[in-house]
Write a protein that binds this DNA or RNA. Sequence first.
DNA 1: CGTGGTGTTGAAGGAAATCAAGCCCGGTGG
DNA 2: CCACCGGGCTTGATTTCCTTCAACACCACG
Lengths: 238, 238
Amino acid sequence: MHFVEKLGRFTELSDDERIALATCVETEKVVPAQTRLVNQGDEYPSAYVIERGWSFRQRLLKDGRRQVMNFLVPGDAIGFAAAFFAHADHTVITMTEVRYARIDPDRLMQVIAGSPRLGATLFWSTALEESVLREHIVSLGQRTAREHMAHLLVELAERVRKGGMPEAEAQLLPVTQILLADVLGISPVHTNRTIRQLVREGVIETSARGIALLDEPRLRQMSDFDEQFLHEDGGPDF
Amino acid sequence: MHFVEKLGRFTELSDDERIALATCVETEKVVPAQTRLVNQGDEYPSAYVIERGWSFRQRLLKDGRRQVMNFLVPGDAIGFAAAFFAHADHTVITMTEVRYARIDPDRLMQVIAGSPRLGATLFWSTALEESVLREHIVSLGQRTAREHMAHLLVELAERVRKGGMPEAEAQLLPVTQILLADVLGISPVHTNRTIRQLVREGVIETSARGIALLDEPRLRQMSDFDEQFLHEDGGPDF
DNA sequence: CGTGGTGTTGAAGGAAATCAAGCCCGGTGG
DNA sequence: CCACCGGGCTTGATTTCCTTCAACACCACG
């Protein structure tokens, strides 16, 4: 029930609200790495909430270039707003084994109708996601590859910490460098050089399974990380 | 009442809903160009809807670099979701004289509580905005300066067309090249060279007051513009 | 009639892409 | 068992795109 917990972190939910929310959760499912949860161009399948593991959103251009939008960690939602659209404009792929819950959109609508506070809270969590997108825009437009990389790593560490991912998994970002290149909008070769440099400086560490942070304070400093952008400064005001 | 009209384009609103929405609109105000409607770091002032003119959102880094997130055209909303946050993480500045309406958030909340359909519609319009941000990420990450510029121009032409801006204004994007540089994430000099090239090719035209499109089909083609991303394919499904 | 913001263009330097080659490692099949 | 293969990682050399620096023209404005 990460979904209920996540919203509960924003607003103090009553027991009634918790119970009502829980009735929206349908089946839970576990899928292996490299599974497509949503397919660009297809009809939007449904609404989901990630409960365990890593995934990411990507968008393909006609000539094969791809851009990775963001990563999804436990507590993140898929398709709450986007489900309004006829077709998905992006693909969601799992990077590890992932457990997720299907949410019944109609039921959710009913629940919200009964509790505007819940609606506002949901709205809030969408706004938070938008904030992450905006920060990505800033990174792509203004930060150097090095700064962008550092910023991304700190952001993920932060989000994962709040998302209730088990400590062991949270320490390690399970990405290939090719994937990372398409997040940062740079070539795989340059991604590699940037990573190697950060490793030489001792702020990160690489292994076969991914990237681990060694010196988060320095990463924050070199990326000019703004504590405020994940908006820990409060949820909706009632 | 562009606000009501805009939402009305997504969903068939009843007269009651229209009237209820209209009661949320407080004062209307007209401000000159270069006015700050929202200030990064300040408390979020309120919620607004743009009714006439051009503005943009920007975010400043500590060292002075700035990134422009997106442009705001008539019908666009400011601060509906973001007002939940304690502090604004960006600044909004007008580029022309702008007329906007203040929306009473509390009143809006009440109205939504009385009509979940309205809430969903508002939610939908937020999702649409997010879609524009995602496209900006794709452009920054994957497209060349030339492609990005072409894509931006077509996107704005399209949005402005749907936003009910007067034909005369809609034809002209009132930007300085320095501003455009901070949208595209490139230097002013390179922005200039990119523009000059497009002018030489005869697809756009510049004047003291801004940029005008001459050959939209070619711009679409060179930017691989995807008709679908502004999601004309339908609003919320009831 | 200066003055500052904007636009324009050339020249030089730097960041990142591309091209190319070799490595490690896990999987697969002879 | 090991040869082979493919995917990801690493590094050097070269090229391309974009930045930076610099100079000047233009024009709106005080």
